[in-house]
């Protein structure tokens, strides 16, 4: 029983990090019909920004991490929108999707070429201690990751619902024509969305990389999981992406212990197939969320 509890907690922990990537994925889709297949690489890259700043340039870690988040907001947010999305979206969703796939490959190969093809150790923000709760041994990084990732998502929700800018962003996502005739600066709202995605990816990167090593190929699984989590949750809402992320985290952890570590990577895909078969609109999705 205590082992089960342990697995659930650590599943929620990784799941909440998956959710960060999935929420960003969903936001981009809502705001600009961008299906970002480079999302996994967006989570891979900021860890290398941290390493470049701290190991190569000698910045202390406490400075390197916030700087990396700011750089991610600029590169993965602003530059991504300006250089990839804006020129491609004119030609339709599919060319843009293909461009994001290409971008993913480019980022991966660049890190491999210019940083290192080998896994790099990545510092953890938290002591590797454990605490015992109800007989279950829970690691402090697990708790901290969960708190930070959930905190970021809750803060995002509060921003979107509780501020005028947030509500203008929602209006832009739900009905851009109306937002425009009311005088909302929709271009700026879409830009904010891209910047938020950059920040979410960077936070996810800093939290998840200590669990593995920083490696150019880290995005392959992460991107797939973010995509699946977003679809499982319903693709058009933040809560759905959150539930999808947490669910995959838990299933991932339980299956590695109770089923087989070999099938671990297949399970999110099986979950995707099952959900698409029995509930194509996703767990929390409505059959057609967008109004015209």
């Amino acid at each position: 029983m205590s082992e089960f509890f342990q697995l659930i907690v650590s599943g929620l922990s990784t799941g909440s990090i998956y959710a960060l990537a999935a929420v960003g994925f969903t936001l981009l889709w809502q705001a600009s019909q961008t299906i970002n297949f480079a999302q996994g690489e967006f989570v891979m890259l900021p860890a290398f920004l941290v390493l470049a700043l701290s190991v190569k340039l000698g910045f202390p870690l406490w400075l390197a991490m916030p700087l990396a988040i700011i750089l991610a907001v600029l590169i993965l947010g602003v530059l991504f929108k300006r250089l990839v999305v804006e020129p491609m979206i004119k030609h339709g969703t599919l060319p843009l999707v293909i461009a994001t796939i290409a971008l993913g490959v480019l980022l991966k190969e660049m890190v491999k070429e210019f940083y290192s093809p080998l896994g790099q150790p990545f510092p953890s923000l938290f002591p590797q201690d454990v605490v015992t709760i109800f007989g279950a041994v829970i690691s402090i990084p697990d708790i901290a990751n969960f708190v930070i990732a959930m905190g970021a998502i809750v803060a995002l929700q509060l921003f979107l619902g509780g501020t005028r800018t947030g509500r203008s962003m929602q209006a832009t996502a739900q009905n851009p024509d109306v937002a425009q005739i009311l005088g909302v600066d929709i271009k700026r709202m879409v830009l904010y969305t891209f910047m938020i995605n950059g920040a979410l990816a960077a936070i996810a990167s800093i939290l998840i990389t200590p669990i593995y090593l920083a490696k150019f190929s880290n995005g392959e699984t992460l991107g797939l999981i973010a995509f699946i989590a977003a679809i499982v949750g319903g693709f058009n809402q933040i809560r759905g992406a959150l539930v999808g992320g947490l669910l995959i985290g838990i299933i991932d952890n339980l299956s590695a212990t109770y089923v087989s570590a070999e099938y671990r990577q297949a399970l999110p895909l099986i979950l995707l197939i099952v959900i698409i078969l029995i509930r194509p609109q996703g767990l929390l999705g409505t059959s057609e969320g967008r109004t015209v």
């Binding site: 005028r164 509500r167 203008s168 929602q170 739900q174 009905n175 937002a179 009311l182 909302v184």
Partner: peptide, 16 residues
């Protein structure tokens, strides 16, 4: 139809 579907009536007004 020109409302923002998922926002409240009040917040729709506010957007005006």
């Amino acid at each position: 139809r020109n409302v923002v579907p998922q926002l409240s009536v009040y917040h729709n007004l506010e957007l005006g």
